[in-house]
């Protein structure tokens, strides 16, 4: 009996110690093992990787990075008192760099299903978009797509998915000029004033990614990008709208 009581006391002590550690440790959790967050602020430098993925991110004629995600990264850097140094490369190269802590952040329409997910620090999905058939203003997408004539961007998955449903797929280089039904991302349809159908062909969640295990930095990035998700989406819509407008100018002599 005595032994049992002794055990109970020591157990209570351990629990109290654990609770104490909890409260003490609570200040400023989490921290980065490699101090990315502190480094960005101290060196005033944010090393960002850019995957070219129009309209999320692209290069202007003079090679300057642009796109709604680029704007957002610039804003994040400004908030931290840093400037952005961009590295433009294919996704696999940038992910390797991220894995080895050579970069602090990679953006460019990166899907949450990226095969790199386990090797890097995957951010919280800040935007969900749907690839969906849409009807011209005033119209609606028919219940069944069987035998329907639908325009798609060439080389995308939309064509393959729609043919499986029995639709007659038309590839259009300038999708925003194609007549009739079009299959496109929800933000494109919104820019064209199209009415989206209810059944999505594909749903995708978009993320920003950071080096693995840099949990404070990831939290900072997550908080920022979730706060600015609406801006990024609006940027996508604006981009699609501008392109459509350019084309109509070209048509009018």
């Amino acid at each position: 009996m005595l032994r049992r009581e002794g055990r109970a006391t020591s157990r209570a002590c351990t629990l109290t110690a654990a609770l104490l550690a909890l409260t003490l440790g609570a200040c400023g959790l989490p921290k980065d093992p490699n101090d990315t967050h502190e480094r960005v602020q101290e060196e005033r430098l944010l090393r960002a990787g850019l995957v070219r993925h129009e309209p999320w991110t692209y290069l202007q004629h003079e090679g300057k990075p642009a796109g709604p995600e680029v704007d957002a990264v610039e804003k994040l850097a400004a908030r931290l008192g840093a400037r952005v140094v961009w590295t433009v490369a294919p996704e696999s190269e940038l992910m390797h760099g991220l894995e080895k802590h050579a970069l602090d952040l990679v953006v460019g329409g990166i899907s949450s299903k990226t095969p790199w997910a386990k090797r890097i620090g995957l951010g919280k999905p800040f935007l969900t978009t749907r690839l969906v058939p849409g009807a011209p203003p005033g119209g609606s997408v028919p219940e069944s797509l069987q035998g329907q004539d639908i325009a798609v961007a060439p080389g995308g998955v939309a064509g393959a998915l729609l043919s499986k449903e029995g639709a007659r797929v038309r590839e259009a280089t300038d999708l925003h000029r194609a007549p009739g039904l079009r299959a496109a991302w929800d933000w494109q349809l919104e820019a064209w004033g199209y009415v989206p159908g209810t059944k999505a062909l594909r749903e995708e969640q978009w993320v920003w990614v950071v080096p693995p295990g840099e949990n404070r930095w990831l939290l900072t990035v997550d908080r920022f990008v979730l706060e600015h998700a609406e801006d990024i989406r609006r940027g996508l819509v604006d981009h699609a709208r501008t392109r459509a407008a350019h084309v109509s100018e070209e048509i009018q002599p």
Partner: peptide
């Protein structure tokens, strides 16, 4: 030397470190 990444969750409109939920 695998560095575990613990992201964030949305809780009552706040973005919180997921470690707290884990604990």
């Amino acid at each position: 030397a695998e560095h575990p990444t613990i992201g964030s969750v949305q809780l009552f409109g706040h973005t919180v470190w997921q470690g707290w939920l884990m604990m």
